[in-house]
Design a protein around this nucleic acid. Sequence first.
DNA 1: TCAATATTCAATTGATTTATTGAATATTGC
DNA 2: GCAATATTCAATAAATCAATTGAATATTGA
Lengths: 222, 222
Amino acid sequence: MSSANIKHLLLAQFARLGKALSHPNRLELLEFLAQGSRGVDELAGLSGQSVANTSQHLQQLRQAGLVQSRRQGQRVLYSLAGDDVVALMDALRRVARQHIPDVDHLVHRHLDPRDAMEPVPVDQLLERIRRGEVTVVDVRPEAEFQAGHVPGAINIPLDELEARLGQLDPGREVIAYCRGPYCVLAYDAVHNLREKGFRARRMEDGYPEWKNAGLPVEKAAS
Amino acid sequence: MSSANIKHLLLAQFARLGKALSHPNRLELLEFLAQGSRGVDELAGLSGQSVANTSQHLQQLRQAGLVQSRRQGQRVLYSLAGDDVVALMDALRRVARQHIPDVDHLVHRHLDPRDAMEPVPVDQLLERIRRGEVTVVDVRPEAEFQAGHVPGAINIPLDELEARLGQLDPGREVIAYCRGPYCVLAYDAVHNLREKGFRARRMEDGYPEWKNAGLPVEKAAS
DNA sequence: TCAATATTCAATTGATTTATTGAATATTGC
DNA sequence: GCAATATTCAATAAATCAATTGAATATTGA
């Protein structure tokens, strides 16, 4: 086999990977999976598409090598193929933010300028949690929270934030986080909390990055 | 605008990036561009496709934000949008190698096992070049060499290697490199050189990574 | 074994993508 | 201004992809 042929075979394989990343639905599935294993039905619900459609997208992701599946009883659980997939998605987001004006624009328009200036770095946060200096709020839906979350965090999905403000100590700073650096839930939460008079900041990055950094993780009792 | 809408707008933008990475021809163009600026005509020649086709792929890459173009006289010069694009391609290759059995297989089948074991790390190499301990051979085509290469390297395209063995000092170790960690030219060169009795190893990674690491670069006089 | 649940397969339709071709545009050198 | 060169645009046909629908498969619990 000639070098040129090998080169083109390799390029074809890389392109298959790119193709898997070329549909919004699949990217959304990858984002959910970055938070933990999920069944097809569950993913269909989270992404708001039909089960059959979800299944087909998942199979494309699996054929591309981005996710893997294992059977557990009646259900088939999907999960990311490895941490390097998270790194790949991160590289994708980074390029998008850097070189597509719309992306940077969309993100910035939707956040209080101070939020952008004061994200809490992940490494400092762990120490502050241990000292009990901050209230950490996970604003993702309950299902995602139960699959794994930052130790000591309490789960208040964004929808319920206003109704459950009473659970928060007004004297302590609140740190909000969600699915990742581009997840806007945390931005919205910080914005709302500040309007109510809380000191609030968002965690830089989200749960997938936290988990991926090897930091401790807490799970709901099953 | 609701958070959900923003999220889907962002996903659509990320997907556009993925789509740009979903065709082998475009990936090949990106690999050439990782070595320096090139004109459309030149890229068409290098990748062996029509000029019109090349132009259209380049425009897709530009719309996706992966490359940029500037006019210089009659020609339009294309180049990568930034270093993060190299990082993205690297993440893509890494995932492919890790999770697509064929890719790892293709790469390994084509190299002498010792080559895999003894790649020369880039950081050590610079010092050894300065001390004149090694002969560095750039096995890429001449046009790519002239656009930029490792300081002190000599250019012997793979085709000409056998005919030009006389230019190499048999007493000095030869280090071969080409376009990147997946470029097979360097593997082939090392293999051929060893058959002729030379001590030869390949440089880990290739010219784009060398340049991207901020290491010194030499260019042909223009 | 049988019904119930979860997932996958298969077939269809409409939309998108690719390579090719030839024409159109922009810049240089005369 | 005019010819020559480099690049881009526009239109086409073949190929591929996405969402929907209904059927098929596999596992659990009775």
